[in-house]
Amino acid sequence: MLQVSGLQVSYGAIAALRGISFTIPEGAIVTLIGGNGAGKTTTLRTISGLLRAKTGKVEFLGEDITALPAHQIVARGLSHVPEGRMVFSNLTVEENLSMGAYLLSDKALIAKNRDYVFSIFPRMKERLKQTAGTLSGGEQQMLAIGRALMGNPKFLMLDEPSLGIAPRLISTIFEKIVEINKNHGITILLVEQNANLALEISQQAYVLETGSIVMSGESKKLRADPQLKATYLGG
């Protein structure tokens, strides 16, 4: 579904990605793990068009999307839930959700997507008239995911959904991620610092270290890998 080949990105003279390649098959949950500054967020931002690649190619559903502006990439069904959630803080939950459906004009479809979001995150229905900035971190994360789902994506990229969220909500959000993948057939690329959790729900994993992929394989196998255990899984 998504094919990244030889992707290089730099901030001025500093190389953030040193030519990474990976593929994501349709229907899977794939995770990208690694420490701070490894280039995980840069990878997602380059795929979604917020950053420009120096060289390399991103193909989505067979189409080269490397040079497309961000708003045209979303239009093709690739949605990015950014790090730090980035909800529109002064807008209500309802307005945030309707912004998620910005590119859709079919009212029936928008209503259907809204019902779908409410079925996954019932709390959003209760908070409809509240401004997004007043929600808790976990609720904002639900809203950010819900907003992305409003646009009918085929492929969802989640950047650190566990960041800054109450521990008891983290497992709820991860359950919902699996549910979105299973019941709605949305392919997912998950970026996480919490490697244990990410490997648990994904089928495949890539490990990123200072801008290069240093390890990849089935998530199950990686969980048992002694080297990975020592570095990322807390022994």
């Binding site: 979604s48 068009g49 917020l50 502006p69 961000a70 708003h71 979303v74 239009a75 949605s79 990015h80 950014p82 980035m86 909800v87 529109f88 803080s89 002064n90 807008l91 307005e95 309707s98 912004m99 998620g100 910005y102 590119l103 907003r147 992305a148 646009g151």
Partner: peptide, 18 residues
């Protein structure tokens, strides 16, 4: 609404297709 969204967070606005 898109104006307000861009004003609050231009990156997030792009990511929803604005």
């Amino acid at each position: 609404t898109a104006m307000r969204a861009v004003s609050l967070n231009p990156k997030a606005a792009q990511l929803v297709g604005v």
